[in-house]
Simulated scan of single mutants.
Amino acid sequence: MLIVTANDIPGHRIDEVLGEVFGLTVRSRNVGSNIGAGFKSLVGGELKGITKMLHDSRQEALERLTAETEARGGNAVLAFRFETTEYAGTGTEVCAYGTAVRISPA
């Protein structure tokens, strides 16, 4: 699966545009992570628990985007992006999105 942020792929032609695809996950932060983040904010530094949660969330969203693209018969995603939003003050929503296409070498 080729996933790019560009609108085209050099050396390939777009045979079919299959439409927009999404991969979405919403994760809550655990109590320990929130307490640790509160203390860390007093002295500064990386919030490792939250960094790991966001990394894992992005990976899960990307896997879901890939699965949706494959289910539609696509083999690539163009104009790929991530969007992250705080959800109800207790968690984080991560959305991976782009345009599913079927490509072949030019």
Score class of each variant (00 low, 15 high):
G19Y: 12
A79Y: 05
D56Y: 08
E86G: 13
P10F: 09
M1H: 06
V43R: 07
T25F: 02
T84D: 10
H55R: 09
S28Q: 12
R58E: 06
L2Y: 06
T99L: 08
T85G: 06
L47F: 01
T99P: 00
A96T: 09
M53K: 05
S28T: 14
R13C: 15
I3H: 10
G32K: 04
A71E: 09
L42E: 11
A76I: 06
M53L: 14
T85W: 05
T69Q: 00
A37L: 02
A76E: 06
L18T: 08
T92C: 14
F82G: 02
A37Y: 01
E86D: 12
Y87I: 08
A71Y: 08
L78N: 12
V21D: 03
E46D: 03
I50V: 10
G32V: 11
E20N: 10
R27T: 14
E63Q: 06
I3Y: 11
T51G: 00
E60H: 11
G49K: 01
G91K: 15
A6Y: 05
T69C: 03
I103D: 13
D56E: 13
S33E: 09
I3N: 09
A76H: 06
F82D: 03
G38P: 02
Y97T: 13
I103L: 10
N30I: 09
I14K: 01
H55V: 05
S57M: 05
S57T: 02
I14Y: 02
P10D: 15
D8N: 13
R13L: 13
S33Q: 03
H55K: 13
R102Q: 13
S104K: 15
G89L: 12
Y97I: 09
V94N: 01
I9M: 08
R102G: 00
R102S: 00
V31E: 15
S33H: 00
G45N: 11
G49I: 02
E46H: 03
G23Y: 04
K40Q: 15
V4H: 08
I50G: 00
T5W: 12
A96M: 10
G45Y: 11
V43G: 04
E20F: 04
L65F: 07
G98R: 08
T51L: 02
A96D: 11
E20S: 12
E46G: 02
S57R: 01
E70I: 12
E70C: 03
E46C: 02
Q59T: 04
Y87T: 10
A79D: 14
D8T: 14
G91H: 14
E60V: 09
R58A: 06
G38C: 12
Q59C: 04
G45K: 12
G49N: 04
T90C: 05
G32W: 08
Y97C: 11
R58Q: 08
R58L: 01
L2N: 03
G32S: 04
K52N: 01
A76V: 07
G49F: 05
L2V: 12
E93I: 11
G44S: 06
A71H: 10
K40T: 15
I35F: 13
L54F: 02
L18P: 03
A106S: 15
N75H: 05
A88C: 01
